[in-house]
Amino acid sequence: MSEEYKAKVFKSGNSLALRLPKALGLKEGAEMTLREEQGKYSFEPAHSKRKIDVSKFAGTAPWLEPLPREDFDDSRRDWHLLGRDASGA
């Protein structure tokens, strides 16, 4: 069963804002996605990629070494297939 709440629109700077009831359980600073469809509005939590803060533990395992990059290798290129000589010119 859904609940019904009243909310008030007010001016905040040069924008309009919507004051939502605390009973909705939203956290301050939460990002929301707002949709308008045929004059009706709906909102839901925005799906954002979570970022990991490594500042607290970065460098705490000095015995670990970075892995070599595998996206670049030093293998010989077949430049002749592109109509170029071995120097890439």
Rank of each mutant, 00 (worst) to 15 (best):
S2G: 10
E3W: 13
E3N: 12
E4R: 13
Y5H: 07
Y5P: 00
K6Q: 08
K8L: 09
K8C: 02
K8G: 02
F10I: 09
K11Q: 04
K11S: 04
S12V: 11
S12K: 08
S12T: 09
S12Y: 08
G13T: 05
G13F: 04
G13P: 02
G13E: 05
G13V: 05
N14T: 07
N14Y: 07
N14D: 12
S15F: 12
S15H: 11
S15N: 12
L16V: 01
L18A: 02
L20C: 06
L20F: 01
L20G: 01
P21S: 03
P21W: 00
K22L: 07
K22A: 08
L24E: 00
L24H: 00
G25D: 03
L26W: 01
L26G: 01
K27Y: 05
K27N: 07
G29E: 03
G29R: 02
A30R: 04
A30P: 01
E31D: 07
M32V: 15
M32S: 04
M32F: 11
M32P: 03
L34A: 03
L34S: 01
R35V: 08
R35W: 06
E36I: 08
E37F: 13
E37S: 13
Q38V: 12
Q38F: 15
K40N: 11
K40M: 04
Y41E: 00
S42Q: 04
S42T: 05
F43I: 00
E44V: 09
E44T: 11
P45F: 03
P45Q: 02
P45M: 02
A46Q: 11
S48P: 06
K49H: 15
K49F: 15
K49I: 14
K49L: 15
R50L: 10
K51P: 01
D53C: 05
D53I: 04
D53P: 07
S55M: 02
S55F: 08
F57V: 12
F57I: 14
A58P: 08
A58F: 15
A58H: 07
A58D: 13
G59N: 09
G59A: 09
G59E: 06
G59P: 09
T60W: 13
T60A: 14
A61G: 03
A61T: 14
P62A: 09
P62L: 10
P62N: 06
P62I: 11
W63Y: 15
W63Q: 13
W63P: 01
L64C: 10
L64H: 08
E65Q: 14
P66D: 15
P66R: 12
P66V: 12
L67G: 09
P68H: 10
R69L: 14
E70Q: 13
E70N: 14
D71G: 06
D71I: 02
D71F: 13
F72V: 15
D74L: 15
D74F: 15
R76W: 08
R76G: 06
R76D: 08
R76P: 05
R77K: 12
R77N: 08
D78P: 10
D78I: 10
W79H: 03
W79G: 00
W79S: 02
W79E: 05
L81W: 10
L81N: 00
L81P: 01
L81H: 05
L82K: 04
L82D: 02
L82I: 01
D85H: 09
D85P: 05
D85Y: 09
A86K: 06
A86V: 05
A86N: 06
A86M: 06
S87I: 00
S87H: 09
G88W: 07
A89P: 01
A89S: 13
